[in-house]
C-alpha cells in the first residue's frame, strides 16, 4: 500500500504544480463570484439562480479537471517515458494505476472544497440560507467526479489523449441524458419504434446514469432526500468506479511500452 501512496502523493504534487488546475480553479471561482452580479440583474428568484449557478460551476469545472488531467495520467507517463523507471520497479501495474487515480481524486477533493468555500462566501454575501442538502449535493458531485476520473483513466489506458477526451466528454453528456431518454421512451403517449426504445434502455443500463448525482433541483426546491437514497447513490457511484478501474487495470496490465 505504501507504494500506491508514493505514486498518489507524487501525482498530487504534479497536479498542484500544474498551471491547468489553477486556470480552471480561478475561472470557477470567478464564475461563482459573478453570480453576485447576475443576481443584481435578475428580478426575483435570487436564491434559486445563485444555488443553480454555483452548483453547476462546481460540477462543470470539477468534471473538466477530472477529464483533462485524467486523460493524461497514464498517457503522459508513456509519452514522457517516465513510466520506464516505474514499471521496472517492484510495483504491480494495477497499483501504479490506483496510485495515479487516487492522486487525482484527492486533488479534486481539495479543489471541490476550495470551490465550495467560495460558493458559501458568495451565498453568505446575499444571505441565502444554507441547508444540509447543499452539502449532500456537493458530496454527490464529488462522487460523480470520482466516476468521471475513472472514465478518463479507463479510456487513456488504450487510446490517444484526444480520443480519450472526446470519449470522456461524450460519456459525461450521455450519462446525464440516459435517464431522460429512458423515461421518455417509456411514456405511453410517445410513439417510437421498439428498437429506439431498446437503445434508450440499453444506454441507461450500459452507461453510468450521472443524473443520479445531480441534486440541484432538490436543493433549489428544498426537497429533502432520504438517507437510503443518498447511500444508494454513493454505492452506485463507487460500483461504477470500481468496475471502470478493474477494466482499466486489465487493459493496462497487457500493454507494451514501446
Amino acid at each position: 500500500m505504501s507504494r500506491v501512496l508514493a505514486i498518489a502523493l507524487n501525482g498530487m504534487r504534479e497536479h498542484l504544480r500544474d498551471k491547468l488546475l489553477y486556470n480552471l480553479l480561478v475561472f470557477a471561482l470567478l464564475l461563482i463570484g459573478s453570480s453576485i452580479l447576475l443576481v443584481r440583474l435578475t428580478l426575483g428568484e435570487f436564491e434559486r439562480l445563485m444555488l443553480d449557478l454555483g452548483l453547476a460551476s462546481i460540477n462543470l469545472f470539477g468534471v473538466l479537471i477530472a477529464i483533462f488531467i485524467g486523460i493524461g495520467l497514464v498517457s503522459r507517463e508513456i509519452e514522457r517515458k517516465t513510466i520506464y523507471t516505474i514499471v521496472s520497479k517492484p510495483i504491480p501495474r494495477y497499483q501504479f494505476l490506483l496510485g495515479k487515480y487516487l492522486g487525482l481524486v484527492v486533488t479534486l477533493l481539495l479543489n471541490t472544497v476550495i470551490m465550495t468555500v467560495g460558493f458559501l462566501l458568495a451565498l453568505s454575501v446575499w444571505s441565502v440560507p444554507v441547508t444540509p442538502l447543499l452539502f449532500a449535493a456537493v458530496g454527490l458531485i464529488m462522487v460523480e467526479l470520482m466516476v468521471m476520473t475513472a472514465v478518463a483513466l479507463f479510456f487513456s489506458t488504450f487510446t490517444t489523449p484526444t480520443l480519450s477526451a472526446i470519449f470522456s466528454l461524450a460519456m459525461y453528456a450521455i450519462g446525464h441524458l440516459t435517464a431522460d431518454l429512458k423515461l421518455l421512451s417509456e411514456k405511453p403517449d410517445v410513439k417510437i419504434s421498439a428498437m429506439a426504445r431498446a437503445i434508450a434502455n440499453g444506454l441507461y443500463y450500459v452507461l453510468p446514469d450521472l443524473e443520479r448525482f445531480n441534486l440541484k433541483g432538490q436543493v433549489i426546491h428544498q426537497q429533502a432526500i432520504g438517507a437510503d437514497v443518498f447511500a444508494l447513490t454513493i454505492a452506485y457511484g463507487l460500483a461504477w468506479t470500481v468496475l471502470l478501474l478493474i477494466l482499466a487495470a486489465t487493459i493496462f496490465q497487457r500493454r507494451d511500452f514501446q
Partner: peptide
C-alpha cells in the same frame, strides 16, 4: 533506461526519495 526521463518538477532528493519508496 536510455536517455532517462524523470518527473522534472521534483528535485534530485525528492526524485530519489520517490524511487526509494517504490522499494
Amino acid at each position: 533506461p536510455e536517455a532517462p526521463y524523470f518527473y522534472e518538477y521534483l528535485t534530485a532528493v525528492e526524485c530519489l526519495r520517490f524511487y526509494g519508496r517504490l522499494f
